[in-house]
Design a binder for these strands. Structure first.
Lengths: 210, 210
DNA sequence: ATAGATATGTTAATTATATCACTAAGGAGA
DNA sequence: TCTCCTTAGTGATATAATTAACATATCTAT
């Protein structure tokens, strides 16, 4: 098994490329080039080719790339040629925003269960999914063969929820709570910290100081 | 003016350190060390010291760091020793999630205006801020000396909203729409793409393939 | 006082990432 | 068919970031 290490930045860019290619394809354009893609997403052409080169040869020299083909290749690389069963924990505003976000379903992320601690919310419908109490998390997520858990709960309970998701057998966790979660090494974890993002901005706005 | 280049990863970590230090301070702990911080946030002690070294000497050899002091230093570095006026565009679930997110206000991000295109939403109150129509964006945001704009609108209108925010004089934009925005170089831009985050996870879950 | 233990700040080494420059291959037009 | 133009793929180079190693400074205990 080849274990070539691929930079995370490359994966993020591939995701952006694929989104861009979806747009380009929608416009009916058949062929594109590393230069076109680069311009469309704001990177260098060499970067585009290098990113793709980790995974194979998808273009034709002197010509470019077939838009549909390249898009499919990238989706397969990202693991998006199959659907993913996602469990959402926390049905607050953020949870609702995530569950109604069209981009998820389009890319094959199917929210199969939603949990919340608030008895008022339990039993309500979000789209076509019923909000369930937390104490059903492990059983239901396991039943649904949930692969990805989204943590959209207050920081104070985020670790507990995470532990339950892992007990339910998820392989990956997307965490929105502003805490550092502890997970075993075989679990993939990503954190989206909204305040951190604003703080990078404020640093940069004032960064002349340094 | 010294223009030492500081890695963005360092800024992100500083933000995490400061959050960690807030917790530690809340527990009444007076002194900490690069090792403690490293353990608390999951990086190496050398990394912590290196990150801080970009900005000065904040500790005492053989002793460590005063928690309150270091926290204050980092907040100042991040530009959080003053409040920031933030304008939120888009009062959907995501917008509401952001506007009710306590972490923002705690860190000095004050949402001073909210705009939405939906006439049904215009006039409603979000917290103590009234939702205004988009056509008041430029005037009101300018009045409020808005420094940061948050774009939480559909992808199709994100560029137009961004242009208006820039006309209103914002210095930085946090974009949640899944599109590549064009902004002049003096405007700080950060993108939070929820689908990209999930896709990095799915890639990593299946990454044995490569 | 002094020795030992501890933890910072900093320089050096290593590793990772991005850029550049070149080679190879396909297409179009004379 | 041959030449020129274009663009992918790639190895070499440059840059950036992380890790490791160490010298310096402080505290404690004897």
């Amino acid at each position: 098994m080849k274990t070539l290490k691929i930079p995370e930045a490359t994966i993020i860019r591939l995701s952006v490329y694929s989104r861009h290619l979806t747009e380009v394809d929608r416009k009916g354009i058949i062929t594109t080039s590393s230069g076109d893609i680069a311009e469309g997403v704001g990177v260098s052409p060499a970067q585009v080719r290098k990113d793709l080169a980790y995974f194979g040869e998808f273009g034709t020299r002197g010509v470019g790339y077939n838009v549909k083909d390249l898009r499919q290749h990238i989706l397969r690389i990202l693991g998006l040629s199959v659907d993913w069963s996602v469990s959402l924990v926390g049905a607050g505003h953020l949870g609702l925003a995530l569950s109604t976000y069209k981009g998820f379903r389009e890319r094959g992320f199917i929210i199969t269960s939603i949990f919340d601690a608030d008895p008022q919310k339990v039993g309500t419908m979000v789209g076509n999914v019923e909000v369930l109490p937390i104490d059903q998390l492990i059983v239901v997520a396991k039943q649904n063969r949930t692969q990805i858990g989204i943590v959209a709960v207050p920081a104070a309970v985020a670790q507990d929820i995470t532990d339950q998701l892992i007990k339910a057998g998820v392989q990956a966790i997307l965490n929105f709570a502003p805490v550092v979660l502890n997970v075993p090494p075989e679990i993939e974890l990503r954190n989206v910290d909204l305040a951190v993002n604003l703080e990078v901005l404020t640093f940069n706005v004032g960064a002349q100081r340094f």
